[in-house]
Design a protein around this nucleic acid. Structure first.
Length: 107
DNA sequence: AATGTGACGGACC
DNA sequence: TGGTCCGCCACAT
């Protein structure tokens, strides 16, 4: 368990309902602006971990990376349940739902 | 030890 | 506006 991994998990758990973050943002906040793929890897690996709102993490353009039938619908459903409306094409309006961390930096 | 891959991102054409 | 290519990093073969 690296520090980066811990940070990523903390950050994801800190995302409030109704908001989302992109892989790149999470990676940057965790201290590695180039670690988007690692974030993805962690999510893929830790998705089993309960309490981890993996579905609040989406692509940099507000797109869900999961393929249809592979969890995409579930993710959109969960987000919709928190008020995050996705467009018919599955895209999400980042300008409206992207979480703007005011003061993150403890723990 | 070397090579290939991927829940990604950004630059280019 | 859309499709490709390249860079990054950890993990699996």
């Amino acid at each position: 368990m690296t520090e980066f991994t811990e940070q990523v998990i903390q950050i994801i758990q800190s995302i409030p309902p109704g908001k989302v973050l992109t892989y790149g943002k999470v990676a940057a906040m965790a201290g590695n602006p180039r670690g988007a793929r690692q974030v993805a890897r962690i999510l893929h690996s830790m998705s089993a971990s309960r309490g981890l709102p993996w579905y609040r993490v989406i692509g940099s353009r507000g797109t869900v990376s999961l393929p249809e039938g592979g969890g995409k619908e579930e993710q959109l459903y969960l987000l919709a349940g928190e008020g995050v409306e996705s467009r018919p094409d599955g895209g999400i309006d980042l300008g409206h739902y992207l979480w703007n961390p005011l003061s993150f930096g403890e723990e």
